[in-house]
Amino acid sequence: MAQFETERLILRPMTTADHDVLADMIFDPQVVAYLRYRRVQSVDAFEQVFTDHFLADRTRVFGIERRRDHQLIGFYEFHDAEAGGELTYALRPDAWGQGYVAEAGNRLMGYGFETLNYQTIEAHYASVNPNSGRVMAKMGMQDAGELHTFTSDRGELIHVMRYVLTKQAWQRLSA
């Protein structure tokens, strides 16, 4: 069970005590608008993903907890992908714009490369949310262009953008 600390954060496995805060996040359309969790529409579906993913995966899913008040403010997770790892992150809206995701990501990239043995880590964001792309750049990731497009639930065309960091580039940045 891995746990990490940064200046302002504790990055740790999720616990049953995180249930209600995480449910609030998953059911907040602002938080999950462009995440895989936007499809979690019922309490039963949330209970299943909470138990089978957030609690069960203690090596790839981390709660983002503020050190000063020990409040869960979000999550950061790795998913195994064909070329390496893919990351997903989300924060409660009251924690947006404070640099927490980049701070967590800068600490967890090393874990992804050294412990999970990824050769490449990538992340995706919706072009209508350019702040997420800026966060990825702050983690040392490089813009790799458009991955695909889709039509949102509101009928808008969404361009999914891709950022990538290779293990070699991360090692150069870390030196």
Rank of each mutant, 00 (worst) to 15 (best):
E122D: 01
N117T: 11
R154K: 14
H19G: 04
L116R: 03
Q41G: 14
D80Y: 02
S174E: 13
F4T: 06
A95M: 02
E156Q: 12
H148D: 03
R92W: 08
L87S: 00
G105K: 00
R58V: 13
Q142F: 07
R60W: 03
S174I: 00
L55S: 07
T15G: 10
L55V: 06
G155H: 13
F75I: 04
A23L: 14
V43S: 02
W96E: 05
A137N: 10
A23R: 15
E103R: 07
P93I: 05
A23S: 15
M1H: 06
M25K: 09
R68Y: 15
L108T: 02
R60C: 00
D57L: 03
R162W: 05
K167H: 15
G74S: 06
V43T: 10
E103P: 08
M141K: 13
T59A: 05
F75E: 04
A126I: 10
T51I: 03
R38L: 08
Y34D: 04
Y37N: 07
T6P: 03
D18S: 08
V40D: 01
I26H: 01
V31S: 02
A83L: 13
E5K: 14
D153N: 06
L9E: 04
I64K: 01
L22E: 09
F113C: 05
G63Q: 02
E103M: 10
V135R: 10
L9V: 08
T51H: 08
D52P: 05
D153G: 08
A23M: 15
Q171F: 11
A56L: 12
M161S: 09
